[in-house]
Design a protein around this nucleic acid. Sequence first.
RNA 1: GCCGACGUAGCACAGUGGUAGUGCAGCUGAUUCGUAAUCAGCAGGUCAGGGGUUCGAAUCCCCUCGUCGGCUCCA
Length: 595
Amino acid sequence: MTEPETLRHSCAHVLANAILVIWPEAQFAAGPPTSNGFYYDVDLPHRITPEDFERLEKEMLAIVQAAQPFEREVISREKALEMGRSGELAGLGVRSLPSHFKLDIIERIPAHEEITLYRNGSFTDLCAGPHVAKTSNIGAFRLTHVASAYYKGDENNPQLQRIYGTAFATQEELEEHFKMLDEAKKRDHRKLGKELELFTFDEDVGPGLPLWLPKGTVLIEELEKLAKETEFQAGYERVKTPHIAREQLYKTSGHLPYYAESMFPPMELEEEHGGDKNIYYLKAMNCPHHHKLFGALPRSYRDLPIRFAEYGTCYRYEQSGELLGLMRVRAMQMNDAHIYCTEEQFAQEFQAVNEMYLKYFDIFGITRYQMRFSTHDPAKLGQKFVDDPELWKKTEKRVRDVLVSSGINFVEIPNEAAFYGPKIDVQVWSAIGREFTLATNQVDFAVPARFGLVYTNSENKKETPLCIHRAPLGTHERFIGFLIEHYAGNFPVWLAPEQVRVMPISDKIRNYAETIVSELRSFGVRATADLSSEKVGAKIRLAQLEKVPYMVIVGGREETAGQLSLRSRHLGDEGTFTKESFYERLKKEIEQRLS
RNA sequence: GCCGACGUAGCACAGUGGUAGUGCAGCUGAUUCGUAAUCAGCAGGUCAGGGGUUCGAAUCCCCUCGUCGGCUCCA
């Protein structure tokens, strides 16, 4: 445990202690530190609400100020069980009811591990530790919110109240933390999306179904332009597939019946199809459609690799409680592509996919990222994983080699692979430290066979290709959600919905302002003029709030000289430029996608 | 889906049983201005929706929908 983690874990004990002072009957489950604080799960008839926090914090403060030492004691399993039965664990002494969660936890401690207690004051808890030396080492703390959580994270278990808090060694650090949270709130893509008029939701359209306003649509189209250029250069071909398909497609792919519940309910048509019900599903993924495209023509080894790319729209019936702004939606456009290749081509293709990721990271200034390489567990071949040990080993080695040799930041997570092959989840962190899974990258050596996909090899034999699923830009929804927070709404010029706003100082300059706008628009720059009768200060304020990267201010002086006065979003007044020099600078920034 | 909280004008919010309000945005008019807010006037609400309690409901109760904080889930 790191130092702050130890401190926060100790604070969780203090919280439990304080809860017991007020509600002696409270039953506790687990109380670990988290990345920014801690929580303790408690079962209590009283519903704890934020109104209780003041009272609890007062009790906690008393315990902290008492500078109680944390004392560790190794006890026998029998003693632990006995103390659990008498309600002493996570209690202030003997109680009428046993500490049943703690008893359950003791059952799960392997026989060879020692069992330890930690005490402070009259509070005793079953705990592996470690803890700070004394309660007064907890310099500053605050309770933050209360939520519910299933015991041991299993939805079949009862729900407990989870009290969250945070703690730091000093008051200054605590305040710094809350300041950061305030910053995070300002960058929240839901808030900025509303303020900048990027997207909206409507109850009549449905939850999790974003409606893209014109400014948000610009972001979508710029990203697609980038993806299309990049994929074209990398030898991808674009395809188009419908949003729906017959049930049979998902029977073939194996998605039914396992994933039916995360798909929208099927549409059942009146007429029959070959004696069966005629049932259609909205697609939840693009791969089956793409597999059908691969299978539509005879393929030779000379044709491989074949790379099909599509910004495909998928629909997933995510549980209602999981929807979150643009980050979790029910309709999404994926930067999808499927690469069909031979085993020999695999490493090179995979390498090229990785390079594409790195190129995008560079364009968007993503410096904090991690690839999570999920591999299989040999013990679970044939159950959780396709039973082909050699292919697993070979493929995983190739993926690992590519990751190592390209110097990509990655961790390997055993036993988390997909059924049909190893996968790579791409984690990124926005500027304020919020974590996102942007994309999932998968190797598939099972599903092509289910579709009977083959190519003819050089010996005139049929072989099944490997398939790489990749989506470096994830979905528009999540990627734009990330970008909004990453840039705090200050999109680089090439992405900005409005790139230039021209502001005449008075009505007399109106024509000159309109000339500049039409010149800019003639070479594709998204420019508008603010012809309102406001003073220039008000026009600037509005443009700044709308995060327009360039403001062009023109008055009599500029009109006479054929010049313009430039103000940029971040640098402020940049002085006077000729029209041509500004246009050149702008064109270069946009073409090169400078940030 | 589960637990809890919340839902008042386009946005941010006030209003705890007795005539729905403030600021910004919007519209109209005046102003023609040099780097983050010119002035004045006007308009804008089925208080999420439905039901109930009450002489009377934004306010109290029930149901539904949606949002938020978590949990579970994310092929």
